[in-house]
Design a protein around this nucleic acid. Structure first.
Lengths: 363, 363
DNA sequence: AAAAAATTGCTGCACGTGCATCAGATTGGC
DNA sequence: GCCAATCTGATGCACGTGCAGCAATTTTTT
């Protein structure tokens, strides 16, 4: 049974001069004060970094904190402050299945974190108009939101808008799409490594002694795509020189265009032994590849787990999936934003987003 | 900035007949009571399942809970109850590097969860003596621990001890080692799938058109090893019939024995194209394999990420690693135990332990 | 030594929920 | 219509921390 604190007994013990504190009860600010020989007010001043405390006293309090192993009861603190966390996810609009997964997990996470007074909203932006994005970010104030997770392509306008947002006191967190130079905080994977991982899978799964690799992207304009491609090429060139990665085919999200450029390329190239779909929306390219009925020895690798790619993996249309856990991304973003507003640290090992490899057996 | 609840303004608003509640403030039990038209006492009775409330009233309260979207403030509740969570991890003793990782993450997790009044102890048991394990579990009482995560081989004695533990009111959670029939709660991976995943990796990485696969285990007595082997064989037989999995070699944890049986087997078998180390301690077999200097085309797959296997992966001594995240395992166990003592549900998607595949590029 | 500044303490309420006690109110059975 | 049983309410303290207002003490400056 959970431990219920026995109020009365506690008091009696205190009267008898005992500590009144079971070994599994953490010291409180009151205990701290008693240990140091100051009042709770002074302890409070130290804990919350208020000024007007002598350095010597500060040191003594900190020493006692270390010795007693004092940990601030955040629940009680938040309760006292009546604090709540209002976060916003700024995401591209698009019918992307991966994005749908992200949205689903935001809803899910909100219900879990609701017990901790966390609110998560979503706002969709036109990801192709950096000025619009920057303009929208400029409207956000600390009065509305404590933190914002932003998934947007890296452009100078957006980067500046994020910096200004932070200056206004709104914690901003680059989300999935990396925004370099905005600080060390961000949630996502190393896309270079993701591309390299896809390359190893293709390189090792392909048994042919030579051949060409089809590379399909939605667009090569984004930094993420570029990084994946770079990481991919690096590995193919250094470890699998018998394979040749073709120039990236860009679908621009259009099924018709995808069909045209893919079928043309396949007709032209005789010796295709593998296909790498590096965009986060694999549905269109995958559907087209299935239509075109490539020989069965052609290995296909794509990114991001969605209902569609999952099915393709199960059916064998896809040989491997390099993905990041959408739920983890969302929860990590929320935890990081919360830590940022509380000026706490997060647990590195928990927040590191893994580059996951999925085969038909470990879905 | 975080939202500070403006006490004074609140009161004024209430006087003016407003709700006094910003849209991002969750309704409290007081609001609930007002909405239903009962007292906070009655709401409390319903929320905590106390008896003596008319069914009609219960329904009305529940309806209001749904309508207002009331979520009990667990922080406040725990604060009021002075509740703390004392959990125990019962683990094998052994110098296993994987176990060391688990231990490290328990320490780490304790510091994180300490803000939530969670205490995590560790007790080591002799994993080879089911009676001793059962006897130890019999000594645990709800007065000491609210929940216990147990990593122990499946035997009837242990299973019974776990059941009796649960009857005494101590939540028990099978940890990593599955204990079937003790309920749906457990933390770990499907070892059958893990073995199957290793098999796919080996099968696809090996380019030879025929050959033998070395299988190394610490012992085949545990259910986990058996399941991995079964999952492995199933995939090899059905999808890679040109490969032949040799009988399992058991090291019993002894480096000398490992060296002997491995070198003998390798001498006898001419055509070894792959090695699968299915035990959680890969260090000894891996070291021996390196000593024996197998040809470079031999593919090696092992389980569990440790500093040692990580290094082997980086150096190329190992081609792939099938692993489970030790930090995730530990945190998931703590979250599940907490949910069990609170009789809450956990988030399925967060607690599912993934079978991860690691290559040199996605460490 | 007196005045000013810096440091520390006291008191008391607030947050949302749990819980105990006692007092009313409503219902049902006869 | 009366008593008992069942249901509901009122009141108040507790948990650990934050915070405001003011008083008391110590240290530094003039």
């Amino acid at each position: 049974m959970p431990v219920e604190r026995p109020h009365v007994v506690d008091k009696v013990e205190k009267k008898l001069g005992m500590t009144g504190r079971e070994p599994h009860m953490r010291p409180t600010t009151k205990d701290l004060a008693k240990a140091v020989g100051v009042s709770r007010t002074t302890v409070d001043r130290v804990l919350n970094g208020r000024e007007g405390v002598h350095q010597k006293t500060i040191d003594k309090v900190n020493a006692a904190i270390a010795e007693l192993g004092f940990v601030r009861n955040i629940s009680a603190a938040n309760l006292a402050k009546g604090k709540s966390y209002r976060f916003l996810f700024v995401l591209p609009q698009s019918g992307d299945l991966f994005l749908a997964e992200i949205l689903r997990h935001i809803k899910e996470a909100e219900s879990v974190f609701s017990a901790d007074q966390v609110w998560a909203d979503v706002h969709h932006i036109d990801e192709n108009d950096p000025n619009k994005i920057a303009a929208y970010l400029a409207t956000l104030s600390p009065a509305e939101f404590d933190g914002v997770a932003i998934m947007a392509p890296e452009t100078p306008q957006v980067r500046d808008a994020i910096l200004r947002l932070q200056e206004r006191g709104v914690r901003a967190l680059p989300f999935i799409s990396n925004q370099p130079l905005t600080g060390e905080h961000w949630v996502g994977i190393d896309n270079n490594a993701a591309g390299a991982t896809a390359a190893i899978l293709l390189g090792r799964f392909i048994h042919a002694t030579s051949g060409n690799l089809l590379i399909v992207a939605e667009s090569m304009l984004s930094r993420d795509s570029l990084e994946r491609r770079l990481g991919f090429d690096e590995v193919i060139n250094s470890k699998f020189p018998h394979l040749h990665a073709l120039p990236s085919l860009e679908t621009y999200g259009s099924p018709e265009r995808a069909r045209t450029i893919l079928s043309e390329t396949i007709k032209r190239q005789e010796n295709i032994v593998g296909a790498y779909i590096l965009s986060s929306e694999a549905r269109v390219p995958l559907a087209v590849l299935e239509e075109l009925a490539l020989p069965s020895h052609v290995i296909t690798v794509a990114h991001e787990r969605t209902p569609y790619t999952e099915k393709a993996l199960r059916s064998g249309a896809l040989d491997a999936l390099v993905t990041q856990d959408a739920g983890h991304l969302v929860r990590s973003a929320i935890r990081k934003l919360r830590a940022l507003t509380d000026m706490r640290n997060t647990l590195e090992s928990q927040e590191k987003i893994r580059i996951e490899i999925l085969l038909a057996t470990n879905l």
